[in-house]
């Protein structure tokens, strides 16, 4: 009974947390359409989340694309299917690896930094100071970051997809003996609009989730350095899990329903 009670308590706590995050998300969305709007904060968040994430996204994508080409070539050789490298790299990067890896990189880089920054603001009373300066923390801190992630992560995913495919192309044409023109033609011919739509949709959902979770954990952090540390760690764990779960659901919605 004790074990069952403990499991029950954990499940209830998890459901309560999901409910609180959901309410937080609804509040954030309600503030998106209500003035005042903080354009400078949005621009700063776009720079931080979008532009400054490009190097890590680019490097992740190019190495993944290259490794994918090598794996498909080596695996395909077992049943004489080496020629499918362009098609599988394209579909693998655009449908799955591009959005998921960009999402996880955003969780590592952006969610953690948002959670740590806002949690530090909370423990140093900067959030209270915002309120006393007639500034709603949800509007000033959460909305710009969530909007910036919603806008920029699909763009990052598109860039990651292209660079990942290029990584596969570079390895395939440089070391595996593929013809460059044929590789590009096979890639372009094989991809369908739905692949790209699913990729960008996943990017938008993952970006929204990553920024929102960072803000939620920051706003609800405990006191002191331990509170900031726990908020940062918890935000990255939660964002990574939500991104992977959402990826499963979205893949099902796009490709099996």
């Amino acid at each position: 009974m004790t074990i069952l009670a403990a499991i029950g308590r954990s499940v209830l706590a998890l459901l309560a947390s999901v409910g609180r995050v959901f309410i937080f998300a609804v509040q954030a969305l309600s503030h998106v359409v209500r003035p005042p709007f903080y354009h400078k904060e949005l621009a700063a968040a776009l720079l931080n989340i979008g532009w400054l994430s490009l190097p890590v996204v680019g490097l992740t994508a190019i190495f993944t694309g290259g490794a994918l080409a090598l794996q498909i070539y080596a695996g395909g050789a077992r049943f004489n299917a080496e020629a499918v490298v362009p098609q599988i790299v394209a579909i693998g990067m655009v449908r799955e690896l591009g959005p998921v890896l960009v999402g996880l990189m955003i969780a590592a880089r952006v969610t953690s930094s948002i959670a740590a920054e806002i949690a530090t603001m909370k423990v140093t009373e900067q959030i209270d100071a915002l309120i006393t300066l007639s500034t709603h923390p949800m509007k000033y801190l959460t909305v710009p970051r969530v909007l910036a992630a919603l806008i920029s992560v699909p763009v990052l995913v598109a860039v990651g997809d292209i660079i990942g495919v290029f990584g596969g192309y570079a390895v395939a044409t440089g070391t595996l003996g593929f013809n460059p023109a044929a590789y590009i033609k096979n890639t372009v011919d094989f991809l369908e609009p739905l692949d790209i739509i699913s990729s960008l949709t996943k990017g938008a959902v993952f970006g929204f989730a990553a920024a929102l979770i960072g803000c939620y954990f920051g706003m609800h952090s405990g006191r002191g350095a331990m509170g900031v540390g726990a908020a940062t760690k918890g935000s990255v764990e939660a964002a990574a899990m939500v991104i992977l779960a959402a990826n499963f659901v979205l893949t099902g919605v796009f490709f099996t329903l």
């Binding site: 603001m121 140093t124 009373e125 900067q126 209270d128 100071a129 309120i131 006393t132 300066l133 007639s134």
Partner: peptide, 15 residues
Amino acid sequence: LARFGMLFQGGALFD
């Protein structure tokens, strides 16, 4: 709040 000001214990300046 529109006619209010506050000095916080730790300053609470936006870094």
